[in-house]
Design a protein around this nucleic acid. Sequence first.
DNA 1: CGTTCAATTGATCAGCGTCAAACTAGGTGG
DNA 2: CCACCTAGTTTGACGCTGATCAATTGAACG
Lengths: 232, 232
Amino acid sequence: MKDTDFQEIKDLPLFHNMDNSNFDTLIRGAYIQNFPTQVELITEGEASNFLHIVASGCVELFASWNERETSMATVRPMSTFILAATIKDAPYLMSARTMEKSRVVLLPSQDVRKVFDKDNIFARSVVTELAQCYRTVVKNSKGLKLRTSIERLANYLIKQNIYAGETGEFDLKTEKRLLASYLGMTPENLSRAIKALQPYGVKISGAHVIITDMNDLESLAKPTPSIDDPDH
Amino acid sequence: MKDTDFQEIKDLPLFHNMDNSNFDTLIRGAYIQNFPTQVELITEGEASNFLHIVASGCVELFASWNERETSMATVRPMSTFILAATIKDAPYLMSARTMEKSRVVLLPSQDVRKVFDKDNIFARSVVTELAQCYRTVVKNSKGLKLRTSIERLANYLIKQNIYAGETGEFDLKTEKRLLASYLGMTPENLSRAIKALQPYGVKISGAHVIITDMNDLESLAKPTPSIDDPDH
DNA sequence: CGTTCAATTGATCAGCGTCAAACTAGGTGG
DNA sequence: CCACCTAGTTTGACGCTGATCAATTGAACG
């Protein structure tokens, strides 16, 4: 593993405050692997053997049932995923596949649980991270049940604009078909939702988004911290 | 507080293994209150001052946005709720109201966080509980995105039948309008969904449910551990 | 026994998915 | 360099799922 990887992992909130020797334990047992695009890293229902960390590239979490499939989240560096399954020693609830060539660090779940039992600071960080994940999913769930697809798209665009520096102009980072699935609609419906937002000051051509009238868009989207603010 | 309450709280997985003196600390600062039905205990967006425990009765967790409202969960004794907000010292993501006359124990969030910092065993229990909550919400989210409302109802009935002892006969424990909201549909639509399940061996009159042909129902519902098994 | 609210039913409509076809962009090989 | 291929995107037509509105039935409670 590169030293820069090492340092970046240690800088993650999950590991940052923990005891160095315990962190070394985790890292010593770690695998680092390079995957091409479209590789299924883990499969829903399987035992959770590793805590995964996306070091570079991009990973999609998705779920399937009865021939249907939906995107649950997109994980970008540096982030961990499937922490809950690792800690509970329970089967994965989601599958994961690379969306680009990606570098992934694998920490054996047994090691993670062992260190978790030994290192109180790490245990606290796990709690914080889990509470964060929990609240994120609750917000998503609220969005799904309380909003129409157009409203979800509008709020998604507002959020992306904030990430991009509130310039009113940015590029979508994911394929539209994936974004559609994440937002709980079909690609066709996303296309139409995009057109439906034109009267509200949104121009999208290809992956490029321009928001010309934020007030207008917000009057439709009605963003609220308890659904849309990740830190709330 | 009654001794039986005390013991029942201590028996909750969250508190069971923790240090007795720390548990006493929590309980000493606790309030116990009796509420009539339809009282709003907490409101979405407010600061989380207490960890709540339902000692008797029944509490509904719900969320609102833009004049719309949806039921997120029903909490029955003995269970805690809004643990994540308490631990993160973040605003509530959901509101809560009593559905019946209820007895609720309130543990000041500050105390909970203090004990959490001091008692490692308690901290571990919090992790387990949070991981559980997280996985439950993920499963709900998957159900919402991957299933139609009839499929959600069918799986709900199968699950309730299991809780009731797999006799093929049981009573719904919640109002239908609430169940509808929980399942992500309108009351009218729930009525129709119930009728749509008749050909699959489901008889519902009032709150009483009879499942005459479980195979038939399962062929429609296609239950799977990674959505429907709470312990998975 | 009447009041009240939940549950049901019917009619209608909007939102969204499905299917098919056309269009576009990015990548490959001649 | 360009034609071609492939896969994603968009568009249109259509239909199903589920929401809305209105009216009726049913059940619980004082």
